[in-house]
Amino acid sequence: MADNTNSNYQDQFFKEKHKEEMKYQVITFAMMIAFTIIAFGLVVGDFSKYLVVPIILVLAVVQVLFQLYYFMHLNQKGHEMPSLMIFSGVFAAVLTILALTTITWI
């Protein structure tokens, strides 16, 4: 009986915790939509190319970090190995893009 009450408390605790997490997910989503609108707005707004391209690239990177850390839960416990794997992937990806755009075809 006592055990049952205890698990009820636990259930309640986790439900609250999930709700709290969900709040951050919705904020993340709002930020991503806002960044998207800013990026499209900058391109439509006819600004200098050298101003727009770096800004939209930074916006994309920030948006992706939001996605990785909140939507894909990299900010939660037990995600050390996944972080290592995805960021090794990112490291190799940067090298690949650099090589292809500077050596292979140019």
Partner: peptide, 20 residues
């Protein structure tokens, strides 16, 4: 997650090709 790391590199090669 290991697979996703690999996919990142795979898409990078396509992005690099496109940019070039």
């Amino acid at each position: 997650w290991f697979f996703l790391g690999g996919e990142t590199v795979l898409f990078a090669s396509l992005f690099g090709t496109y940019l070039a």
